[in-house]
Structure formats: C-alpha cells, structure tokens
Write a protein that binds this DNA or RNA. Structure first.
Length: 118
DNA sequence: CATCTGACACTAT
DNA sequence: TATAGTGCCAGAT
C-alpha cells in the first residue's frame, strides 16, 4: 500500500497540496489517512511537504512544520495565517492526468469572504 | 491473536 | 477559531 500512497503523493504537482485523507482516498484507502503518515515516514524523496492536514493545517511539529511552510511557500502555495490556503492550491486527484489550474492564476472555488483571517 | 502507534478526520464544545 | 474527544485503518510488536 505504501507504494500506492507514494505514487499518489508523487502525482501532486508543484505549487499544490493535498490532505492526508485525500491522498489516502486517491490511493484507494479511503479513511486511512494515518497510513499516509506511515508512508511519508518510511519513504524518502517524496514531496512530503505537499501533504497537509484537513483545512490546510500543517501538522508537523515545530521545526519540521516550519520547513514545510518554507518549501510550500517557495512553490508558490498561498498561506492564510498559519495554514495553507487549501481552497486555492488543493490538488484534486484525477483519474486521468488533466492539468489543473496552477495556484495563483485562476482561482478555483474561493470563499465568498476573502476577508482577513487572523 | 491482542495491543499499541501515528505528520489524521470529523464533530461537539 | 482553538481544543478535546471519538472513530479510523494498517503495520509493527
């Protein structure tokens, strides 16, 4: 299964992110979000930083969390406060490879109230 | 086979 | 919004 999860994570393009749950689901293990963690831990050379918690929360502890933020920010992932603006950069796993709107260009479904967030 | 363990998700408060 | 409790699943011991 790790293989599946790895492959799935590898599909996440630069500048986008996905939640553990989504990844698990896309990999064929709906509800096994925690297994994604395992996969991330064991595997190397993966865009691990593109995997965040539900709502765009960065779940890694302190140091690591900051690094993830850096990496994501470097890829152009928009942040909203301490979390990723997942509404804009969320990667939707497709059955077939179809290019998705790159983060920052056209906004996908945005919140009707883009007002200040903390 | 019984338990424990996680970078979780979801709901209620 | 932030925190706490409960449910979850697969692998390791």
């Amino acid at each position: 299964m790790f293989d599946q999860i790895h492959a799935t994570i590898r599909r996440i393009p630069r500048g986008r992110v996905a939640t553990y749950g989504e990844v698990a689901k896309a990999a064929g293990f709906a509800g096994a979000a925690r297994q994604v963690v395992w996969a991330l831990q064991t595997a190397q050379r993966l865009p691990w930083h593109r995997v965040v918690g539900a709502g765009g929360k960065i779940l890694l502890p302190a140091e690591k969390g900051l690094e993830q933020r850096f990496r994501l920010a470097a890829e152009g992932v928009p942040f909203r406060g301490s979390r990723v603006d997942i509404d804009q950069c969320r990667y939707i796993f497709l059955k077939h490879d179809v290019p998705q709107t790159p983060a920052g260009e056209t906004k996908i479904s945005r919140s009707p109230h883009p007002q200040r967030r903390r």
